[in-house]
């Protein structure tokens, strides 16, 4: 059964633009290969961190909302841990209130653009 998840990860600022895109693409393909489906994807770009992580004070934030079956989350997180470009990640199972909120957010995000 496909549950809805939301994952945010921070990539090191040392990466060039292309490497950053490649890292994101890698995870998107990973989701698609394992029978997942990407619902929404948002790039927050370079942001200042509230506290230095691994001696770096800024990072590329990226948000991916996707539907996947629960076993896939373990493999996703193993990939995150293995990948040195990603300095921090958080995956979050969305309940119905979270899903409703995400849709509303996407709606007004689209408006702003």
């Amino acid at each position: 059964m496909l549950k809805q998840y939301e994952t945010v990860f921070i990539a090191t600022p040392v990466l060039s633009e292309t490497q950053m895109k490649e890292a994101v693409a890698k995870y998107l393909d990973l989701i698609k290969d394992n029978g997942g489906e990407v619902v929404y994807e948002q790039d927050w770009g370079l942001r200042k961190l509230a506290y230095p992580i691994q001696k770096k004070t800024t990072g590329f934030y990226h948000l991916i909302e996707f539907k996947a079956n629960p076993e896939f989350i373990k493999t996703l997180e193993i990939q995150y841990r293995r990948d040195e470009r990603i300095i921090r990640f958080l995956t979050f199972a969305m309940d119905k209130h979270a899903v409703a909120y995400a849709e509303k957010r996407r709606a007004n995000q689209a408006e702003q653009k």
């Binding site: 921070i10 506290y51 921090r88």
Partner: peptide, 11 residues
């Protein structure tokens, strides 16, 4: 706590 983990908020 999640925001702190993602360095959106300081500890």
């Amino acid at each position: 706590k999640r925001a702190r983990h993602l360095a959106l908020l300081p500890y």
